[in-house]
């Protein structure tokens, strides 16, 4: 049993999500519909993308404290430049991704603590966001709005998009050769370097991928909210870390699961909806999210204990 669970770490995130979903449907049977599910997971897509972005960094044993401000900045750029002059907007977003890659290379080359560099960058992103959009406003490009409100047959947009994100990142990180090497950097950077890989470039790649998914997160967020402000996604830093951990990822050792991360993000998004269905006093909503987080992580511990005893 323990062996089975340790081989299939993904089961715990799936289990947590199912329990939460079952509880939600029990409390609010009407949510069990195309429209209801779309509502439940309304904001899940940007959170899932941000979680994947954080996962890319945690995959190489670092942590990104600037992700929330970065997503906010992207949202501001999307709601202004990308809407008004698309070409300039695209160039700015590409430059942001390159900056992320550069940040990874510098962190590796100078052996800097990622937690502090990203902390500093969070001020930079925040300042740039204020620069781009001093007061809330802007508007979403129409095509983005249309994309985020599309109604595919059978499953709602949020669910279809989450499945797609999980699939693409799984192929990229778990199945592909380069993804395997990137995870190897997290597992044992020395042996990857010894095998002749340029680790600095690999780290830049991981950060660049993180920037790419961060950009997607900011764009989809604007597509849903139709406008932006400089503080729109500050919560995403902590949400994304929590999402990766909920999905069975770990802070060190390159142990990440893209599918788990997406499920973790869905769980977090659902937890918020669930609590509002519970008619819990708004005072306690945040606290209850914290409690759910602790609960799920405790479950993870029970699984881990089993692994140890059987391993």
């Amino acid at each position: 049993m323990g062996q089975f669970l340790s081989r299939h770490r993904i089961l715990l995130p799936i289990f947590s999500l199912s329990v939460l979903l079952a509880a939600t449907f029990y409390m609010q049977p009407r949510a069990m519909s195309y429209f209801g599910i779309n509502l439940l997971f309304n904001l899940a897509v940007p959170i899932a993308l941000a979680t994947v972005a954080q996962m890319m960094i945690m995959m190489v044993n670092d942590i990104d404290l600037s992700l929330g401000t970065f997503v906010s900045l992207v949202a501001c750029v999307t709601a202004t430049f990308l809407n008004d002059s698309p070409l300039l907007g695209v160039l700015i977003l590409a430059a942001l991704i390159l900056t992320y890659a550069g940040m990874g290379a510098v962190i590796h080359a100078l052996d800097l603590p990622a937690i502090v560099v990203t902390l500093g960058m969070s001020f930079v992103w925040g300042g740039l966001a204020l620069f781009v959009l001093p007061s809330p406003g802007g508007s979403s490009p129409d095509w983005l709005r249309a994309l985020m409100t599309v109604k595919p047959p059978l499953v709602p947009m949020a669910v279809a998009a989450s499945v797609l994100i999980a699939l693409v990142t799984h192929l990229l990180i778990i199945r592909s050769g380069i993804g395997t090497v990137l995870r190897g950097v997290g597992g044992n950077a020395r042996s990857v370097a010894r095998a002749g890989w340029p680790v600095a470039r690999l780290k830049a790649l991981a950060y660049g991928l993180s920037g790419l998914f961060g950009v997607f997160a900011g764009m989809t967020l604007v597509g849903l909210t139709t406008s932006a402000d400089a503080n729109i996604a500050l919560r995403y830093t902590l949400l994304s870390i929590a999402g990766v951990i909920l999905g069975g990822g770990e802070f060190i050792g390159g142990k990440v699961s893209p599918v788990g991360a997406v499920i973790g993000a869905l769980t977090l998004a659902l937890a918020a909806s669930f609590l509002s269905f519970m008619r819990l006093s708004p005072d306690w909503q945040i606290g209850a999210q914290g409690a759910i987080l602790i609960l799920v992580l405790t479950a993870r511990l029970i699984f881990a204990r089993r692994e140890n005893t059987t391993g």
Binding site: T180, G184, G187, G253, G254
Partner: peptide, 12 residues
């Protein structure tokens, strides 16, 4: 790399 499979380690 302890987080990779045996075959994935060969890939490295």
């Amino acid at each position: 790399c302890p987080n990779l499979t045996v075959a994935e380690n060969l890939r490295i």
